[in-house]
Design a protein around this nucleic acid. Structure first.
Lengths: 191, 191
DNA sequence: CTGATTTTGTGGCATACGCAACAAATCGGA
DNA sequence: TCCGATTTGTTGCGTATGCCACAAAATCAG
């Protein structure tokens, strides 16, 4: 499944230098005021080399977010997970943790990257649900599975945002109250 | 004084990778049982690249020791230091600390590298004293200055070793008792 | 708005590094 | 002792990175 073509060690190394420097910079600098030169200087990498890896800083950010979501959100589910209250709750908690971590890691940048983060999260959630549905209800038509996944991802992200801004409950308590509304929607897959 | 020719960032980087990996390896591996491949694997650097930086692992060790001594022993003296009891004591304490640090850092390797360490320390001490003498007694003939420096360096290294193995005094107390013997020798420079 | 300055991409050329292969040297066990 | 297996240096070639210069775009001060 995972393409493990051998990668030149130099490529991995400079990529890591760039990503690490980027993440460190976001602790103290606003994303939108961070130039490519700032990043490459911090990474002790030539500016031209940056462009051999990423087209611009947005692609770099995207890559960082993708990696993190892959490891933490999609990784929060066992490979044999089912689509049910349990997995929905796990995903909710993973997203909540992800946003908290990110708001700390990126301090100064969080507001300017939030829209991109929101998109990435919903993409990631959609991907998770499509995968689960295809495994559990293989006969479901593609459109239906996609729409169901999109709706679930919007619900969960919306719930997460609401929890952060309006709720005084713990994440666990919040999702428990929200679960019924999610499962009712999922049930439509059974028809 | 210090030659600050611009160095290719790649050279600095891989050199640091090699040195860092080497120091880390010495925590757990005996120097004499550590192969070049062990070092380059830990450094994620190609074996051929190692030979572009060092001729063998002895030169690597030498380089590490030289750097450390330059920063810690020779650096323990102000640039305007005089050759007197005070500077001799400072150098003694710096060497004592150096050997202690090294015995911790190199755990498993300390015994197998000790002879090399001893030579490097005495070279470093000799260099320090020659420098001090040349500054303070510029008219001293070269041979005399060298001989005096050699004798001082052997005295001090011997004192350090004796303190480590036989003495229960603190380093500060030990050197205080030893100082008179050093200064008597130094006095011969004034003749 | 204008002009100056900074940032952004891109390209060519020089250099350092990765890789595979090799012979010589060293090591370790019958 | 000898033989197989590592380790050691070395080489040629392909690739990634560094460096420099340049023009276009973006930013900023007046």
């Amino acid at each position: 499944m995972t393409t493990d073509e051998k990668v030149d060690p130099r490529v991995m190394r400079t990529r890591k230098l760039i990503v690490d420097a980027f993440e460190t910079l976001l602790h103290t600098n606003d994303f939108k005021n961070t130039s490519i030169k700032d990043i490459t200087d911090a990474a002790t990498v030539n500016r031209a080399t940056f462009y051999a890896h990423f087209t611009d800083k947005y692609e770099l950010l995207d890559s960082v977010l993708t990696d993190y979501l892959l490891n933490n959100v999609q990784g929060s589910l066992e490979c044999h997970a089912q689509l049910n209250e349990d997995s929905a709750a796990k995903v909710f908690l993973a997203i909540a943790k992800f946003e908290k971590d990110l708001s700390i890691t990126c301090r100064k940048s969080y507001e300017s990257i939030r829209p991109m983060v929101e998109n990435k999260i919903k993409e990631s959630l959609k991907s998770v649900f499509i995968h689960l549905i295809a495994k559990q209800y293989p006969e479901t038509e593609k459109d239906k599975a996609e729409i169901c996944s999109v709706l679930l991802s919007w619900q969960i992200y919306g719930a997460c945002l609401d929890w952060q801004t309006n709720s005084s409950l713990t994440a666990e308590a919040y999702i428990e109250k929200a679960i019924p509304f999610l499962t009712k929607g999922m049930a439509a897959l059974e028809i």
